[in-house]
Nucleic acid binder design. Structure first.
Length: 469
RNA sequence: GGCGACGUGGCGGAGUGGCUACGCAGCGGCCUGCAAAGCCGUCUACACCGGUUCGAUUCCGGUCGUCGCCUCCA
């Protein structure tokens, strides 16, 4: 008999005046309206990385997507609480720490700090809360106890397993039939499980593991899935609006989270399940285990946050996104185009023609967070603005739109501080131009280019700027 | 094999039952001393085969191909 908790939530009235935002929900496979339980409050939980090494570009996509989604929803008038966990207890952390000869908790601390430092460079701020599994142990243990006492979990030799068949809706999120699930051989703990489908909520301490916590079942550590259920519930409650993560987490991670929480609490963990497509390298999922990764820190170093954000926004969040130099070059060119437009703008309110474009921009984001369509509107805005005389178009709307994408910095392109040497060269070039000594003028322009300056001659005289800046 | 998603113009990438997406690159023009930036124009688009329809890239079925997941994974 289906657990009553997993019926689709009803549809409480939306707050008047808030634009309807739809998102693709993995559970139903449909585009559903965002219907906050307590409007205008929107709670979002996103599965963050396991910190056993530096994060790569693929790890960054959910961070970026949901950070931007939060900015958008806040712009729309919602009050957003974004929680994104950091998994700091995991087999891979033990393995990596042992290889490097450091305590596993120190490695996890260091890599968590590196993750924060790397993602900070996007300039999108931090999620409201970034819980650590290791700091949520009481909640984890209590949740497991609840599952044991309700018959959804059982202890076995210091481990605790979730009984998949005690939960009839298992498989509904990932659209799998329990009866058709393939059970591989040699799975850890197979001899202790009552059913091969069952998965670990608590793992007894094993030799060589240098972190452990006390529990009613003995010393050990939590399984991966239960930590997220506990962290999410402890900070957001049950039945929050959006649960997100990479599409590779749909099964088993989110399936298990959903099952655990629903079994323990009698309510669905989240109202909408939103999954982000994979970043690819060489047409394959970017993944540490495959080895085809590009580190986020290096990507930011090479391309800068604005180009990287433009790149992420250039594709719809649910689609795969290829990481390659051509894509990044295009993103850089697009960002440069916005800066060029911004240089011609005046501070202040935008003209009348801007309002419909501005609305189309936000409509695009309201339709399953369609950032490519939103960027297309920005391009139209640019073209329209560039068709007007420089200095006559107010920049407010462009900044408003781009700020939601974390790209307001593209609009704030003041004149570059020109060093004395460059200024002198520019002055000599102007002298040469006045004397119609074009050869000399071009030589001086070449010199400036070697110093990293691009010269643009306009009606108001030459302008010096840093290409790509 | 099961489940999910996808195949759009040189490349990337939205979208729609009939009407310019957009970006990058190319080409032509305007502007410029020349450039750069910008503007205008241009460039065999909707994998293949059937079906529904007055009309399908858009709906349905099939074929081929690609990707993801099937208990490491953002």
């Amino acid at each position: 008999m289906p657990a009553p908790c997993c019926r689709r939530p009803g549809r409480p009235a939306r707050v008047a005046d808030l634009r309807t935002v739809t998102l693709h929900d993995t559970l139903t496979g449909e585009l559903l309206p965002l219907t906050p339980e307590l409007p205008p409050r929107v709670r979002i939980y996103v599965c963050g990385p396991t910190v056993y090494g530096r994060v790569h570009v693929g790890n960054a996509r959910p961070f970026v997507v949901f950070s931007l989604m939060k900015r958008f929803l806040e712009r729309e008038g919602y009050e957003v609480v974004l929680v994104s966990n950091i998994t700091d207890i995991n087999d891979k952390i033990y393995i990596a720490a042992e290889r490097e000869g450091v305590p596993s908790d120190r490695l996890a601390d260091a890599m968590a700090a590196a993750y924060v430092a790397d993602t900070d460079r996007f300039g999108l701020g931090r999620p409201d809360r970034e819980p650590l599994a290791s700091a949520t142990m009481d909640e984890i243990v209590r949740l497991i106890e609840r599952l044991v006492s309700t018959g959804h979990a059982y202890a076995a030799g210091g481990d605790v397993y979730f009984s998949v068949r005690s939960y009839p809706r298992y498989g509904e999120l990932s659209h799998r039939d329990v009866e058709q699930m393939d059970q591989g051989e040699g799975v850890e703990g197979a001899d202790r499980k009552r059913d091969p489908l069952d998965f670990a909520l608590w793992k007894a301490r094993k030799p060589g593991e240098d972190t452990w916590w006390p529990s009613p079942w003995g010393e050990g550590r939590p399984g991966w899935h239960i930590e997220c259920s506990a962290m999410a519930e402890s900070l957001l409650g049950v039945g929050f609006e959006i649960h997100g993560g990479g599409s590779d987490l749909i099964f088993p991670h989110h399936e298990n989270e959903a099952a655990q929480t629903c079994a323990a609490r009698g309510r669905s963990l989240a109202r909408l399940w939103v999954h982000v497509g994979m970043v690819r390298l060489d047409s394959e999922k970017m993944s540490k285990s495959i080895g085809n990764v590009f580190m986020l820190g290096e990507a930011l170093q090479r391309h800068g946050p604005q180009t990287l954000l433009t790149y992420f926004c250039s594709g719809h969040y649910r689609q795969p996104l290829e990481y390659d130099e051509d894509r990044l070059r295009e993103a850089a060119a697009r960002a440069a185009g916005i800066r060029n437009t911004a240089r011609r703008l005046a501070p202040g309110p935008s003209p009348e023609w801007s309002a419909p474009l501005r609305e189309r921009f936000f409509d695009a984001l309201a339709a399953d967070f369609n950032t490519p369509r939103a960027l297309a509107v920005v391009s139209e805005w640019e073209r329209t603005a560039n068709g007007h005389e420089a200095g006559t178009v107010g920049s407010d709307d462009l900044r408003l739109m781009l700020d939601v994408l974390g790209l307001a910095g593209l609009v704030d392109v003041g004149p570059e501080p020109v060093d004395e040497r460059a200024a002198a060269l520019a002055q000599r070039r102007e002298q040469a131009r006045r004397e119609r000594d074009w050869a000399q003028a071009d030589r001086l322009r070449d010199e400036l280019r070697e110093l990293g300056w691009e010269v643009r001659d306009g009606p108001a005289g030459p302008e010096l700027l840093r290409p790509g800046a």
